[in-house]
């Protein structure tokens, strides 16, 4: 269960391009969670259409593999950009030299191991997000939510629909691997809460025009607090924790994709 929720959360918070999310105004905090729920229904409908879940069509498996890996990889791009601008004065190759071996190692151990690894980090990730949101609270201003997204329903609907490719593959893959409908539902609900909280906190701290060019708004939000406190300085640690989450999601995507290409069913719950 945890790795699906982790993948959905990473895709929702870090993978989607800020220009795409905020180009038409605010509302990502509504559209993205709605998109996750919509993706849940879409994936359930897809699963019902597949005659044999153990051997899905080859074309679907290939698309699924691509979709599984694409968005965690996009999130990795976001993290690399953030690391280069905010943390290290280093090239991408140097950073990838640390990231890729770990991702490949976990992927080679298998999707079960990746899922179990994600369970170990789940609490730390949720806590780090909660702390980030809590300490950005001093910068919350409701006026930044205006104009409200409910004033532009077509844009909201369009954004919801356009975000679904980021969430359908993980839910569909989880349904194929686990063989049950309940597990992706809980993961979807958890990731709705996580992405909604993160995006809503960002929207309260910055207007949409600023968010368009901001890859890590929660990081910047933490810097708004003028107090000199050790806990407030843990922003880079939180970036690393979430990067770790993305690495696990990417490793799981690679391993699960490989398993799906071989059309083997996973036997162990995540």
């Amino acid at each position: 269960m945890s790795v699906t929720a982790l993948t959905l959360s990473v895709n929702g918070v870090f993978a989607l391009d800020p220009g795409f999310l905020y180009g038409g105004g605010g509302g990502a905090y509504i559209a993205v969670p709605l998109s996750i729920l919509l993706s849940l229904f879409i994936s359930r409908a897809f699963l019902k259409l597949i005659p044999d879940r153990r051997r899905p069509p080859a074309a679907l498996r290939v698309l699924l593999c691509l979709g599984l890996a694409a968005f965690p990889a996009l999130a990795l791009r976001t993290f690399l950009h953030a690391l280069q601008t905010l943390v290290y004065d280093a090239g991408a190759v140097g950073l990838l030299a640390f990231i890729l071996p770990a991702v490949l190692y976990i992927a080679l151990r298998g999707d079960e191991v990746a899922a179990w690894t994600s369970r170990c980090f789940a609490l730390a990730l949720v806590l780090s997000l909660a702390v980030s949101v809590a300490f950005s609270a001093s910068g919350f201003q409701t006026y930044r939510l205006y104009p409200l997204p409910t004033g532009n329903i077509p844009h909201l609907v369009g954004l919801t629909l356009l975000c679904t490719p980021a969430f359908v593959p993980p839910l569909l893959a989880a349904g194929l691997a686990e063989g049950e409908a309940r597990t992706p539902t809980v993961s979807a609900l958890i990731s709705c809460a996580v992405t909604g909280a993160a995006l809503f906190a960002s929207a309260l701290c910055f207007p949409a025009q600023m968010l368009e060019n901001m890859p890590m708004p929660l990081y910047a939000a933490g810097a708004l607090d003028p107090r000199q406190s050790f806990i407030l300085r843990l922003d880079k640690l939180f970036i690393m924790l979430w990067l770790g989450g993305d690495m696990i999601a990417l490793a799981h995507a690679l391993a699960l994709g490989a398993r799906l290409l071989k059309a083997e069913k996973s036997e162990v719950r995540a």
Binding site: F98, I106, R109, C120, F121, L241, M247
Partner: peptide
């Protein structure tokens, strides 16, 4: 050693590998 070479990024990578090894 990982912190020496890569700071928190190195530490994160080694921690992930260690936890994954324990999990597997």
């Amino acid at each position: 050693i990982s912190a020496w070479m890569g700071g928190l990024l190195g530490l994160t990578a080694v921690t992930l590998v260690t936890v994954a090894s324990l999990a597997g």
